[in-house]
Design a protein around this nucleic acid. Sequence first.
DNA 1: AGACCCAGGTTTTTT
DNA 2: ACCTGGGTCT
Length: 672
Amino acid sequence: MLNLDHLNPQQQEAVRTTEGPLLVLAGAGTGKTSVITYRVAWMLNHGVAPENILAVTFTNKAADEMRERLKNLLPQVDHKTMAVSTFHSFCCRVLRAEVHHLGYTRRFGIADASDTEGLIKQVMGEMGISKGDLDVNFFKNGVSHAKNNLQTPEEIRSNSKRDWAATLAELYERYQRHLRNMNLLDFDDLLLQTLNLWKQHGDVLARYQDRYQYILVDEYQDTNKVQSELMRTLAGERRNICVVGDDDQSIYGWRGADITNILEFPNIFEGTRVVTLEQNYRSTNVILKAAGHVINRNESRHAKQLWSTRGEGDPIRVFEADNETEEAQLIARMITQLTYEQRSGHGDMAILFRSNFQTRPFEQSLRDANIPYCIVGAKSFYERREIKDAVAYLRLVHNPRDDLALLRVLNTPPRGIGDKSIDNLKQYQQITGKPILELMHSEDVLKDMQPAAAESLRCFASASDDAAKTFSEVGGLAEKIHGYLDSMAYLEGLGRIYKGHEEGVARLENVIEFVNSAAQYEARIGGTATLQMFLEAFSLTDDSERIDDQSEEDTGVTLLTVHAAKGLEFPYIFIVGMEQNLFPHERSIQDYMVDEERRLFYVAVTRAKNNLIMTRARQRQKYDKRYPTRLSQFIHELPKELVEFPEVDEFFSPATGNQVDDVFSQLRTRFS
DNA sequence: AGACCCAGGTTTTTT
DNA sequence: ACCTGGGTCT
């Protein structure tokens, strides 16, 4: 039987409450993941069938971790039947089975962010929206926002008096029509169309409600309207829905997360049991008090007060440097000193910053000081042009209606299909509404083209047909991918696309690496891996986890943005660039979003287990100019008695006799 | 088709 | 300062 003894009373209550709506307010470091996994284990032990449980997370990483911990906790249960997945992959699975109800086919492809942007530009062109007016980002965000908030184009038109409303609505409609013609769903659609499906087809919904009788949602503060509505719909009359999250760590409002989901949950589900986890197992009380004091300024939050049994701990220290270079050098010196006098390794330390551009001077200073480091979230392998091209080739074979993929690779490498021919095809596409690849099979269309171009198009089309046949049989996926890219002259063409010999070779190596990743995927899944599965994994899986080279992660200092640090912890945390307009960011100040920025600061502070050091540069270079800076308001918001503002030298002053004794006694106990 | 030039934009990031 | 994308010229 499951032993809950080492859980605290609130955690136990959360675990035992399996029926009805439950809101678990899990403050930073309060053992949330344990609670979730124990709760699932508890349900399984109490007769709930694994296939009746749905656990939803935001990231694959979180889903993997949960699955892993469940496996350890309950090795005997058949975990394959239990749905632990991200919102997107869950919805994708539903749609693969049901999407025909909505007029797509189950071979639908997934449009990524750059497809979305490209298509929106195209639609803007169609509508004759000139550049001077509203820009691509406006429409991209506008459409995404509308989708996330369940606004139809009709509603945009009628609800908003803004002069751009009608334009946005029309663009949304056209954009969506294009996607549908190409049998593509964008990321937002995966969620939205699943919700539409359920709302429009009660019988389908009933099947899913019957299957998923117990629902668990992690990081609920990050859900948007569609996501909360999806879960509410699925929970139905049973209302067995448990959401876990921390409103104080809601830092994704800017991309559609709606904090009111977690704030209003008890009002939306009458009779909600609320369990607040306040015992923190991570940090010293100085850190918790400081964080709590700051976050208390925010209105509209669920009250909570974190505490721990780890003692008071050292005060927070704030240092100032003249400029960003010296700030970076200061941090490097401090790290050297700390590793020297304490027993902490580089892996115990992380440098947190608000914006990515701040990494530069730190890379330099750490390298100069011979300190190993790793940067989280550096630009990814899969963003590279040659990889996206390779993926576009694959997408086209899988979904021949994917004009976006086709146009990307039709003349990559150059094969004599110029702008003229491409325009021509687009024209036909507009008139007939048929996929371009299909048009390329029509001699009526081809006779309009230059003979050379027509021949090239014919050749491309027939190679695509061959590939489609090849991939329709199961097995040998990586091999087939290699053969296909080769047959399209893509591998050979890389040398022509990229001028320098070196660059061509490097790009080719990357593509080969990509083929290898397909082989790895195949090895993991087994011989039954299909192109569709691989593409789906590619679209819905985060880059960093696809290639795992975590070997160095343990040994180096970690550099990462505060956003990327959510969910992590380190004994030593350095928050750098504590300047007004940088953190909080100036954009958030203009937009009255300082509350979210304050939550971001709260997240940063609560990453620290033992020691928190913050720095500021008095001057900072921005683009090509230097500016004087002001200290961040968040520093002023910290409780005075918990913060010290030492001079830089004080950090490096010789150790006192007591400290020396201390170090030696620690060493003695360690080696005795 | 490919080299070259200029304008615009540079918070955070998942799926 | 620096990169990207789009436009133009050869």
